[in-house]
Design a binder for these strands. Structure first.
Lengths: 284, 284
DNA sequence: AGGACTCTGAAACAATAATTTCAAAAATTG
DNA sequence: CAATTTTTGAAATTATTGTTTCAGAGTCCT
């Protein structure tokens, strides 16, 4: 028998144009109810014109919009009359024992618990510190978390000046410590299999009145003693490794918070950056 | 909110006329989908005239048939919609307008939609490819996604041999391309502000029969044309940047899947790695 | 940078849906 | 059983939806 409308959309998604993709997203978003309005309202919802809706319907193999809508209604009828609770699964096509669904469950649980444990004032205080442009910011990660440090660095660097990513090789760290001034910030990532080098570094900079912001797991790295701000993140996953998803979530949320605090600066920096990229393009 | 349409109908059933009762029965029969057609077809279905439908809608307290139909659609939406999407607050202590809660909503929505669009067979096929130790794996990212590439590299490298992370500098890429054999895998990260270098690279390796696995956003990088496997990930966030959280989720889930496929190999590699770390400790 | 191509939405048009009118059919009543 | 009231649907009318056309915007390619 034939595919569902959502199957068809996904199938042909890559052949759809920009306006059609907007539409596809709206249709799939609250599927299939979002397709049950008039063509006019659907077009408005997707911010495209009604002709685009018609064209898309035809591209998907229907004679017109009403035809597509009928197909949706028929599917809906079949779904509704079938009492299986489809929505307790993340990926509806996969069994709930599939790794995708198990992982999603774990991550959501991690997120919920991590947020529950985090007083928003702490979060706000850290975002305020990072937004204070008088303080230089240093970032350092461990073996696994280095990628996270890198990610934070790349983003903060656009937001404001004076951001430094310490290299993976701990031999060079003292050179950077030399530069740090009182009031500067050191963001440390240290997640289980805590690394001795990081503790040494933390102790060292603490003596220079550098404030430490620590990202660690629910058990807490020993660096915590030296840190003035700490994010304890739940990192459990159905895998031999820990999950960094929630940590990344925190980094992005933090970046967004800093961004709104110093939007004026950030905006002009982003513009400059765009200009520089454009010039680089011209060179080749 | 007040009563549902079906409540109202049952309430007033005794005051309905003969034609109206026919209608009521049709509406309640396949509730609420049967009410989602045009007034004409509904009238035909109930074997009454269209004016009867209008009169009934007004008798039930609606301004007309479209008004009733909207009410039905709203109910349907509330029933169908995913309970997880309705999570009111993530961080209980913060107001739901706090960036943490807004970000959490966005990320969950991204996750749900990305999973919805991903056929699990595709996922399984990719994990099987990555678990095939005869194939060398190359990984490359762009400006922002480099950290993700790095993260995947760090993890895969423990799982199996023959993993290479291409450097950020695209000048050196040809040297690596030289090494690639037919059947090898190239994992490409390319998220909006698609990078021309990556397209060139993709075209180049495609000619050598290297299979490309692409991680991109919901709009789809132009690399997609050359890719044999593609993950379209929704990346919207309440920020000037896109969110990489769901992409990282996919990487971790994929890593976990590969890990279970070749657990024998991975286990012994992890043991060896532990031993090496221990010896390194002894050196200092 | 310019030409060929594709994509898009405003506007005109066609089709259909929804409402109103009204006369006839059914039900109710004395 | 006729007079009255209520209910009903055919037909006319109005409102809205859905489709087509077409010119200009945008993109791609050399």
């Amino acid at each position: 028998m034939s595919d569902t409308v959502s199957d068809i959309i996904r199938d042909k998604f890559n052949f759809l144009t920009r306006a059609e993709r907007k539409l596809a997203n709206v249709l799939l978003d609250n599927y299939p109810v979002s397709g049950m309005t008039s063509i006019t309202r659907l077009a408005e919802l997707a911010e495209v014109s009604t002709p685009s809706v018609v064209r898309m319907a035809q591209k998907l193999g229907f004679t017109g919009f009403p035809d597509l809508q009928n197909a949706l209604r028929d599917e809906l009828e079949a779904t509704i009359s079938n009492p299986i609770a489809k929505h307790d699964r993340w990926s509806q096509q996969a069994p709930d024992t599939h790794i995708l669904n198990r992982f999603a469950d774990a991550v959501i649980d991690n997120l919920r618990q991590s947020l529950d444990q985090l007083p928003p004032e702490d979060f706000d205080r850290v975002s305020a510190l990072l937004a204070d442009r008088k303080r230089a910011v240093y970032i350092v990660g461990g073996r696994i978390t280095h990628a996270l440090a890198d990610y934070l660095f790349t983003h903060l660097q656009v937001l404001r000046e004076n951001i430094t990513l310490l290299p993976a090789n701990s031999n060079i760290w003292p050179h950077h410590v030399l530069n740090m001034k009182p009031g500067d910030l050191l963001v440390i990532f240290d997640i289980r299999r805590y690394e001795r080098d990081l503790i040494n570094l933390a102790d060292m900079v603490k003596e220079q009145d550098v404030e430490i912001i620590l990202f660690t797991d629910q058990w807490g790295s020993p660096v915590g003693k030296a840190a003035s701000h700490r994010f304890n993140i739940k990192i459990e996953a159905p895998s031999a490794w820990d999950s960094s998803v929630v940590t990344l979530f925190m980094l992005e949320a933090l970046t967004a918070a800093v961004e709104t605090r110093i939007w004026g600066v950030t905006k002009s920096r982003m513009k400059q950056l765009e200009a520089l990229f454009d010039r680089k393009k011209l060179f080749r």
